[in-house]
Amino acid sequence: MKGTEWYQADEIAEAYDDKRFSGGGQFIDRREKTAVRNALGPVADKEILEVACGTGRFTVMLAQLGADIVGLDVSGPMLAQGREKAQAVGVDDTVEFMRGDAARLPFPDDHFDAVFAMRFFHLADRPVTFLKELARVSAGPVLFDTFNLESSRVLYNWLLPMGSRLYSRQAVESLLADAGVDLIDATHDFVLPYGFYRSLPTRIARPFRKLDRAIGSAGGGDRVASVSYWVVE
């Protein structure tokens, strides 16, 4: 996996949310949480697995909505942040945070009602292996996102310390076929890359987000979106 050592550093975990999801980054956080809720539907009393759960943004949100959820991640410091969040809002009894390898999930087939992985496939060095594992342990939908090759993400990617895997539409279709899963739904967003929003205060980012959504909803907007959310079974 790209950036494994960087991702597991204590200082990265402690500053992760503030650096990415404050200011203009709030628009990213809201959109991603909407994508998760839309893909999974009602989650009350369902067993959910989040792979690459990081600091537990989605894990804790779904626990608050009534899910019985497991958050798995390779980073101990990230998991520690998640546990603190769960305890702070009183859902630590319905959340289990565990350290593990997404390529070898320690669960039987069809164990969960749904599985998802956000902010993961752009770092994956074995995307087919990972997607097969996510699908294996899910009796229902699997959600994941990609950063897209035919978008402004290409320019932003040059600035990243570890780079990202970018996917063309053809590459995603090939990934789904190789993993033996069927596409159920797909949505696309963010003509402007994430890094642009994170660099702006909320009041300045807001009109850009409005413009971004207008461009995205116009004809051909999906083709220039920098992020795609895929739901498969």
Rank of each mutant, 00 (worst) to 15 (best):
M1H: 09
W6G: 05
Y7M: 14
Q8S: 15
E11R: 09
E11L: 03
A13N: 07
Y16N: 01
D17E: 11
D17A: 04
R20D: 05
F21C: 09
G23Y: 05
Q26H: 03
F27H: 12
D29N: 13
D29H: 14
R30A: 14
R31H: 13
E32I: 08
E32G: 11
K33T: 09
V36M: 02
R37S: 08
R37V: 11
R37W: 08
N38V: 00
A39K: 01
A39C: 05
L40C: 11
P42M: 05
D45N: 14
I48M: 06
C53K: 08
G54D: 01
T55P: 14
R57A: 09
F58Q: 12
V60S: 02
A67S: 04
A67L: 04
D68H: 02
D68E: 06
D73V: 06
G76C: 03
A80L: 08
G82H: 06
G82T: 07
E84N: 09
A86P: 14
Q87D: 04
A88T: 00
V89W: 11
E96G: 07
E96M: 10
G100Q: 11
G100A: 14
D101K: 00
R104K: 10
F107H: 11
P108C: 12
P108W: 05
H111D: 07
F112R: 11
D113T: 04
A114C: 08
A114H: 08
A114L: 06
V115C: 01
F116S: 10
A117E: 00
M118F: 03
M118N: 02
R119D: 03
F120I: 02
L123F: 15
L123P: 03
R126V: 09
P127H: 02
V128E: 05
T129H: 04
K132A: 04
L134G: 12
A135L: 13
V137P: 00
S138T: 03
A139T: 10
G140W: 14
P141K: 13
V142R: 10
F144G: 05
E150P: 02
S152K: 13
R153I: 14
L155E: 15
L155Q: 12
Y156D: 13
N157P: 13
W158A: 13
L160G: 06
L160K: 06
L160F: 01
L160H: 05
P161N: 04
P161Y: 04
M162P: 02
L166A: 09
S168R: 11
E173C: 01
E173S: 07
L176K: 08
L176M: 11
A177Y: 02
A177L: 09
D182I: 02
L183C: 15
A186Y: 05
A186E: 15
T187K: 00
H188G: 00
H188T: 12
D189A: 15
Y194A: 15
Y194W: 08
F196G: 07
Y197L: 08
R198E: 14
P201M: 01
T202V: 05
T202C: 00
R209A: 02
K210C: 10
K210E: 15
R213T: 15
A214T: 07
I215Q: 05
I215H: 08
S217M: 06
G221E: 09
S228F: 07
W230I: 11
E233F: 03
